[in-house]
Amino acid sequence: MSTTTWDIELHNLSGGYNQTRILKGINGSLPAGKISVILGGSGCGKSTLLRHILGLNRPMEGSIRIGGHDFFTLDKSQFRKIRRRMGVLFQDGALLGSLTLGENVGLPLAEHTKLPKETIRKIVLHKLGLVGLAEYIDYYPNELSGGMRKRAGLARAIVMDPQILLCDEPTSGLDPINAAEMDQLLLSMKKHFPSMSIIVVSHDLESLNHIADNVLVINKGQAAYCGDLEGLQNSDDPYLKQLLSRQPNNIEQPAVSLGADIQAELSNWLR
């Protein structure tokens, strides 16, 4: 396959789970060699989009073109070739609980190459070193903190030197220091692998401002914005403004008011 650039283009992409349509015709492009952030509120279809790009779910309509190939019409061997050039960091790392960090990170190498064990261990040590976990190579995932698991997941995602690195909410559930470290790591990945496309699914505005070159905003299953970060910050669109300035929607007052007697009874119990 003579793919040189690994741009990802979405054409009128619709998809979801079991008849429920979550994505409704998304157009956009995620260029190679940049960090693209897919931004959106909870339940807007970010993760669904990620699963489509990964080829885990087939879209209902539309297409995903990776490096100019229509991903879902490729035959099996070509599909797998592209798959092998992807690295994924899942939300909680998705490390296999029965293997040590070293075995986890080295798993793709052990399964797909005939490299000797010592060589694999050296590669694994190098990749774990990139995320600062080299001394934890013989630990099991549940002996580590959530932030470490995510970093180890990142090490596994880059062990095959992928062309596309996808990260599902890399900073969610992390304290500000760990989150900042993760941003730093993603930026260093970009420096290490200049031709790699990094796609980050997130709703973390802080890290968006730090790392994003390119942003795809999804709202209610549709692309609300696709372009560079500055364009987003200068946009006049009311939804985008609301999103960036963290304005809440008005939550309606509860329609049923609690009677005074019930309130009194409740206070009685809480005394």
């Binding site: 990964l54 080829g55 798959r83 998705a94 609980g97 798993l107 793709p108 399964e111």
Partner: peptide
């Protein structure tokens, strides 16, 4: 139980994506 936990914590998807 083990395979079920792997399923709900994305580990099976992770294997799939690693082309395993």
């Amino acid at each position: 139980a083990e395979i079920g936990v792997m399923r709900i914590s994305d580990q099976i998807d992770a294997l799939d994506v690693m082309d395993i």
